[in-house]
Structures are given as structure tokens and as C-alpha cells.
């Protein structure tokens, strides 16, 4: 079943503030074989906050997304400034675009990530591909 066709243009409530601690950044860096040197967090660290916003979209029962059929098609980050320890970050997700291609919903999302003062830090654009039920054994396409 396709998702709610009126989804495009909808903005979801902002996520609860996420405190960037040294431990969290250190663990994220270590998971990708890197190490934290005390400066900026790794460039893809804001996905942690954006992922919270995307989860809000995907788990909203009125939207109609079946989580196991979602794959991550595309990702873009545009940074106003790097994330640093001590930041309190919030993400507000808007569905920019919704298209149907071959039975799949292509959902273009934009999460505006702001700091405790409401100032912009980073915009995370994610394209989510919500495959139709007949595609459950289809191994093409992206990754969740």
C-alpha cells in the first residue's frame, strides 16, 4: 500500500534535544575505525540526530510506511558549521517530495538540524525508498 499521498510538504514535530557528549562522539568515531581528536565530530555524525527525525516519520501510523521495506537511497549533508561536543541538537523533518516509481514510494526528506539557540548547524537530506510488498525478495537498490 502506498504512503499517504498528502505527505509532501508536511513538517513533523522537532525531535527532543540530543546532547553531543565526548563519549558519544568517541564511540561513533571508533565504530568507523577512526578516533576522536577533540575537535569537530565526524562529518556524518549528524545522521544520529537526523535518524531520530526519520524514525518519527517512519513510525507515524498515519503515514503508512512499513519499516522493513524502507531502504536508504540517497544522502546529502550541507553544513553551516561542524558539530562539536556540548551541542544540543534538534532535527525538524519536512517531506519535500513524494513520487511513485514502479510501485515504490520515493520519499525526499530534509531534516534541519539546529543548536540550542535555534541556529542552523546542518541540513540532512535523505531519500527513502519504500518498496511495494511484491519487492520483498528484491535485492536491488539501496540499503536500509
Amino acid at each position: 500500500m502506498p504512503v499517504d499521498p498528502t505527505l509532501a510538504g508536511r513538517t513533523f514535530p522537532p525531535t527532543a534535544a540530543y546532547t553531543v557528549t565526548e563519549e558519544r562522539v568517541r564511540e561513533f568515531a571508533a565504530a568507523t575505525g577512526s578516533s576522536y581528536d577533540g575537535g569537530a565530530a565526524p562529518a556524518t555524525f549528524p545522521i544520529v540526530v537526523a535518524f531520530g527525525a526519520m524514525t518519527g516519520l517512519m513510525e507515524d501510523p498515519e503515514v503508512g510506511i512499513a519499516l522493513h521495506r524502507v531502504v536508504h537511497g540517497e544522502q546529502r549533508f550541507s553544513y553551516t558549521r561542524p558539530v562539536v561536543v556540548g551541542d544540543e541538537l534538534t532535527a525538524e523533518l519536512t517531506v519535500d517530495t513524494l513520487r511513485q516509481i514502479g510501485g515504490a514510494d520515493i520519499i525526499g526528506t530534509r531534516s534541519e538540524i539546529t543548536d540550542a539557540d535555534g541556529k542552523p548547524v546542518c541540513t540532512a537530506f535523505a531519500t527513502l525508498v519504500h518498496r511495494g510488498p511484491s519487492d520483498d525478495n528484491d535485492d536491488t537498490g539501496g540499503e536500509a
Binding site: D37, A43, F77, Y79
Partner: peptide
Amino acid sequence: GMYTMALAARALDTWAGGTGKVRELSCKF
């Protein structure tokens, strides 16, 4: 997918000589 993208970012940090230099980063999975 984001793990692989994080590895791309790690390479960028290495080439740039540290973190915090990336202004834009994008890819398809």
C-alpha cells in the same frame, strides 16, 4: 549505507588533515 558514507568522510578528514573541514557531502547507495 551510512557506515560506508562515514568511511568516505573519514578519508576526507585524512586528506584535509583533520575533522570539521567538510562543507557538503553526498552520495547514492
